[in-house]
Design a protein around this nucleic acid. Sequence first.
DNA 1: CCGACCCGTTTTTTT
DNA 2: AACGGGTCGG
Length: 786
Amino acid sequence: MGNYLNELNEQQREAVIHKEGPIMIVAGAGSGKTKVLTTRIAHLMSQHKIDAFNILALTFTNKAAAEMKERVEKILGNSEARNLYIGTFHSVFARMLRAEGPKIGYPNNFTIYDTDDSRSVLKTVINEMNLDDKHYKPSVVHNRISQAKNALVGPAEYQNDYYIQQEDMRSNRPLIGQIYQSYAARCFKNGAMDYDDLLFKMYELLRDFPEVLYKYQHKFKYIMIDEYQDTNAVQYQIIKLLAAVHENIAVVGDDAQSIYSFRGATIENILQFQKDYDDVKVVKLEQNYRSTQSILNVANEVIKNNKGQIPKDLWTENHEGEKIRLVRTMTDNDEGKFVADTIQEQKLRNHFYNRDFAILYRTNAQSRSFEESLRRMGIPYRIYGGVSFYQRKEIKDVLAYLRVIVNTRDEEALKRIINYPVRGIGKTSIEKAVIFANEHNISMWEVLTKAGEFGFKAGALEAISNFVIMIKYFQSMLSSKNAYDVAVQVGKHTNIVKDLFNDKTTEGLARYENIQELFNSIKEWTESPSNDDGELGDKTLGSYLQQITLLTDADDDKENSDVVKLMTIHAAKGLEFACVFVGGIEETLFPSAMSINTREELEEERRLFYVAVTRAKKNLWLTYSNTRYRFGQLVQNEPSRFIEEMPEQYIDRSFAGGGARNQGYNDFGGTSAFDRMSGGSGGWKSNSARVAEKYGPPPTKKETKPAYMPVAPAAPKVVEHQPSADFSASDTTGLQVGQKVEHQKFGFGEVLKMEGSAHNPIATVKFHLNGEKKIMLNYAKLRIVD
DNA sequence: CCGACCCGTTTTTTT
DNA sequence: AACGGGTCGG
């Protein structure tokens, strides 16, 4: 400790040591923004003896929060940092609402609804109003309500706002306001908040309860906000309230990286900041420490096409580096192969590790072709985002039990588990219970506890009674047992675990493993150290459930695991990688077809492009494909307009078509030299010989070809397998090691090993075609030979 | 009350 | 292409 200031440049230091009053740090990509915030926190604590309890730092991802905490701890060299209030907006407010919830009529153990829960409640409400959920689609209505909440518009204001009503009329959904009202009432009745409520209710709490406002205003003497350009109206108002007393607020942001306007974020908040406080200190961080000059120049040049950026003069002392490689392929699969091939090649040639690579894309659906190619090459990877672990069915089932135990008002969870596993409470009984609950304005749970008074049939009555007794039994454990012990009891007592264990299908096995993983993670959480602040240090089930809903699977990453990372560009913000591939640089995909209608939308896409490019430290590949599958249909896309906006001198287009050597560039990979080295795929492509002719022999170490040249495919002796006349993939549920199988392309073989998950059943098969080959594949395409 | 089958939707991005 | 919801038959 002590010399941390020496690591900073002049501007960074200025921002760190600025003690009192508001400060706005306008910073470019890779300029050490987060470093400044963390150092500032450490500096306040060590030099100015500010107590950790009095510092609030808000971020947009759990990962950023965890990193910050870790780094502060490292600088300070003690464990003081664990008492800091560092977290995402949502998780910090959830904690506060947990403490203050009863003031606004919510239980301390209120449930947090994720997007699926919200839509499910909406569907219920829409049906109860006798509206058509095909027209009033829950997802559409949810977006609308979400936007309203983020703009501080409650149900009443929504229905009274002329322009909002006009919009709803125009889309022929005039009743959204009423749905909003019912939805809010239902969530409240269920003792539940959705993601947006965590912000919206926090604002109302501070607005309506002066004593609460007073408490937190005085508690938080210093406030830091990361990624300030991504704040929306509610967040802005909350920050303003919290900071009003001390005005020791430091915000860091880059207007060029504002990419969350779809959830209400507005860079207006940056411009407004200087108007809201007197004497704002503004610091600009313009030196980039991350990327090569080529990368930075490309990013800067493209972003210049946006109007109204805050002028910044970004520069770097880094080397110019290699040119940005622009790569065109014929199909999305070829794109995947190119990337996997190039990763393999770069690893060997330039001694990169898997963890040095990231593959970024605009939409989650694009991950598939990359996954497949990586798997074939045997390159380990991890996908961030997409369907989170906690959204899996079996996980949600167990969590639903836990939710009901903690908050019996949670009707969504109750309905999910009341007859799972089957216990004789059928559809009719459930409907009855819901109707009774609505009629008597009590919770569904209360109906169940007093089932005798509501005239259920004898059989149903007994089933309900047993169910109620069981849940009450679980509840009796809450005070004496921790989250893990309760969860284990639930698993045992409900037979969920046993049922899954007995399910020997691949899916059942995977589900069983997932449940075990859930239990392990609960245990881990239960045993992790808590902080000294009583109000948030608890290890109860209620506390567990609240934080779990706010977790993304990007958060619990095994930081050091040596894998290639795949994620959307949105998810990549704030991260950096030595080598970056950005896929699908095509019109209708990037920029998205949804976002080309207004200048604002298009500029956000361009900022997204800026974010993607500036993730790279050393090497950057931009790939696009002539054709790709979308909704199961082959579509053709033009190259993205962003490609033309890049300055020529930093671009290597030698694999982007146009030149003679690129004609018919349609088969990368599958048969590269590295395939054989890695025991991967290869050898069956009929046209690889042709391609090899065009590109010459595979590179050797002696060659002085630039490092970025793709690996030319070898010219294998190809024998095409002729599938049996009646070939069709069989039901492979019973597939076993040793089984003889046929594959349409690879021919006959024998199963060596089986692994993977239900979604990705992987078998290693030894095929006999073209000599023995071991291939890992998703075995859905196999025929069992008897 | 469960499975098999059919049909419609999905893909912009996230807490 | 793949998943979820709905329907129908056993």
